[in-house]
Amino acid sequence: MSSLLEIKNLATGFQTERGLVRAVDGVSFELEKGKTLGVVGESGCGKTVTAMSIVDLLPKPSGEVLGGSIRFNGGELVGSGQERMQKLRGNEIGVIFQEPMAALNPVHRIGRQITEALELHREMEKRQSLRKAVELLDLVGIPAPERRVIEYPHQLSGGMRQRVMIAIALCCEPDLLIADEPTTALDVTVQAQILNLISRMQDDLGMAVLLITHDLGVIAEQCDEVVVMYAGRIVERAPVEELFANPRHAYTKGLLASIPRLESERKSELRTIPGQVAAIQDFVEGCRFCQRMEREGALTEKRPPYEEVSPGHFLERCPECAK
């Protein structure tokens, strides 16, 4: 097996006042070296929790991986301990978050936040790491990097901050970049710049990207393969062309149909998905999209099998939703 990342039956839960809830409930997928896998789904579907499980950044102590396995470069990550994870994060796996202002430390200069990782993981000395930081800022397209390196995060615009996040994530040339809604807080023209930058870096470094987004347009432009999540589970997974051309699950079809497109007729009624996602503590064991459709009986009692229906195309085979 040459997969860089192999996730099998991952389950992640949170202790709440109302007991244990499973935010991720049996998720499996693989990501090959150098490829981009998109994870798409609506808020609360478990896409971010899946990513945070990989790098062990779940809110503690309420959140924990309940079961399953995460193998990265052949080694098991679940239960591998703090020390191993610290060596991994920022070194072999880089992470960028949606809101760079929340992820950057407001009281440290930009340069310091980059050199921190270099000194820790690469044992560079100060002067050398600072030079590297300027180089990186230049690489991610920040003008006047030697001046920016001594500035603080609040002095930068949103797009610039996201570039700094990317510089930090990439400073140790990771094998995997996890990008959680990296462009959601940005304007369209800046979004295009950032996505373009990620692709370029990917080509240069040969790294794989796990791209989490709710935007199907971003998925269509960036990814090789797509995982569609609904209510903590994967309902469909396929190569990107296949998924857009031949969606099989009712939820995937509904998502694709409900985006307004530039070429669609103005003021025509948009397709919608009726109802809304159930609250997490009310999730049924059976098909959760059937639950949203208010179907009852066997459909919502027994978990539908998740199988490969054609090469590379996986589907949760609910008799109603995936006919």
Binding site: V188, T189, N196, G217, E221, C223, V240
Partner: peptide
């Protein structure tokens, strides 16, 4: 700059510079 929701129409355009 709007991402097109169709992978078969993927374009390779240079994004707009600056902010």
């Amino acid at each position: 700059a709007i991402p097109v929701s169709d992978p078969s129409q993927r374009r390779d355009h240079e994004p707009l510079e600056g902010e």
